[in-house]
Computed example of a mutant assay.
Amino acid sequence: MGALEGRVAVITGAGRGIGREHALLFAAEGASVVVNDLGGSNTGDGTDAGPAHDVVAEIRAAGGAAVAHTDSVASWSGAHSLVQQAVEEFGRLDIVVNNAGILRDGFIPTMEESDWDAVIAVHLKGHFSVLRHAAAYWKAQSKAGDQPNAAVINTASGSGTTIPNAGQCNYGSAKAAIAALTLVAAEELERYGVRVNAIAPIARTRLTLATPGMGALMAEPEDGGVDLFSPANISPLVAYLATEKCPVTGQVYAVQGGAISQLRGWHDVDTIETDGLWQIDDIAGRLPS
């Protein structure tokens, strides 16, 4: 029996890259999968139903259960229809993997409003929209006396958590917000039997290969050795976090190459105090920097 036998998952951005590997592994481990992918370009332009349907065909050919969903999760109705399709097709929903994303890099003085809005919409709103509709389903389930054993795995990034990247103010901001959303959601949804975690992955995908300097760092081994930066090397962590017996919630994990690291957000590193009211000169002389 597979680690995810009998569970139902929706996975966004699952037509290519890391999301595709999630879908293939989840299905191989026994989950029924709704493969969501709008099929747009790296920048989110255009649509193509092909990638989602191709992954579904691959899963079915291997004996798994999957259906395609090709609406945009950046739209409220698209996210709602994704959750609804899982319940209608497979009778329930146990797992949400928020993975869909785009890149529209640019420096702050020259970034267009549309480039900011598009990245925030796909990453941050897309994560929240699916999470919100899934949470409403799980809340209703819990209130009806059928307590879920559900899991959400969000996708943050080192760009928003540990290594700010110049030229990615939109992407980094969205990813940092996703990490924060994960922690809030873990607190809110625990009462309904829902665990919420996030990963910050680095792997060889069309988005990372489009980032200057990243391609050389993650090239496929020429000698046929272990391909640590294959997107397939990210999915086992996500699958574990989605299992029924996993106790983990409210965590963010960086996963890259052969390393998985637990991350922590903003925390005190140095503090100054006063017994009276703050004065500018006092702050200037003592402020940690």
Rank of each mutant, 00 (worst) to 15 (best):
A156N: 11
A210T: 02
E188L: 10
G285Q: 12
A203L: 09
T155M: 04
I163C: 12
E190Y: 07
A135T: 13
G145N: 02
L131D: 11
E222D: 14
G250R: 09
G44W: 04
E244W: 01
L25S: 13
S77I: 05
V196A: 10
L189A: 05
T161D: 05
S77H: 10
N42T: 14
Y253C: 00
G276F: 03
A177D: 06
V73C: 06
K125S: 11
C169K: 00
V96L: 15
S159W: 07
G19I: 04
G78P: 10
Q251Y: 03
G160E: 06
M218L: 15
Y192A: 04
E220L: 00
G91L: 02
G250N: 05
I153P: 02
A185V: 06
S129L: 13
A27L: 09
N99P: 05
A216H: 12
A3C: 00
Y240L: 11
G158Q: 05
T70G: 05
L207Y: 11
T271V: 15
A284D: 14
D54S: 13
A140R: 12
A150R: 00
V252Y: 04
G19W: 08
I234L: 09
V83L: 07
E190A: 15
N42Y: 03
A135D: 10
S142T: 14
G40K: 05
I234F: 04
P164M: 11
A150I: 03
K125A: 12
A74V: 02
P109W: 08
G40D: 02
G193Q: 05
